[in-house]
Amino acid sequence: MDRQEGCKGCSESVQVSPEKLQRLVEIATRGRETASEEVYRRRIGQCEQCPGLQYGTTCQYCGCLVEVKTRLLESACPYPFAPKWS
């Protein structure tokens, strides 16, 4: 049995194109309460500066796509040491 080296995140299959990401945002936010543009921009800015951001799209602490998570009003930052937003 062959063993793959590295984590699954190192494969191309986890890379999300901007088009696919936009479609995922549309699906995830449909019928749900979303954050205001101001709140979204503040949250995404904090995520972009976070050491837990992987591949420019994914939170290492919860596995969520930050573009989706930051848009949902009820979301909270999962950063384990001191959440960056709530």
Rank of each mutant, 00 (worst) to 15 (best):
V25C: 10
R32L: 02
L65K: 04
R23L: 01
E5C: 01
C62E: 10
L24G: 07
V66D: 13
R30W: 05
E48K: 02
S11A: 11
G56F: 04
P51T: 03
E48F: 13
V25E: 09
G56S: 08
E37G: 06
K20E: 13
E26S: 01
E67R: 01
G45H: 03
C47I: 01
G45R: 11
R3W: 09
T34H: 04
K69C: 06
G56V: 11
V16H: 02
E38W: 13
L21M: 10
L65P: 00
R42S: 14
V39K: 09
Q15W: 08
G63C: 02
C62F: 11
T34R: 10
E12C: 12
C47H: 05
V16C: 08
E48L: 08
G45K: 03
L53I: 03
K69I: 14
Y55N: 15
C64L: 06
E12S: 11
Q4A: 14
Q46G: 12
R3G: 07
C7E: 14
C10R: 15
T58C: 07
G31M: 14
Y55C: 06
A35Q: 12
C64H: 00
G56N: 05
E48V: 09
P51A: 01
Q60E: 10
R42I: 07
Q22T: 10
V68C: 08
V25T: 07
K20A: 11
V16S: 02
S17I: 02
S17M: 04
C64N: 08
V14H: 07
L53P: 02
E33Y: 07
T29I: 14
E37A: 06
T34I: 15
C64R: 08
G56R: 07
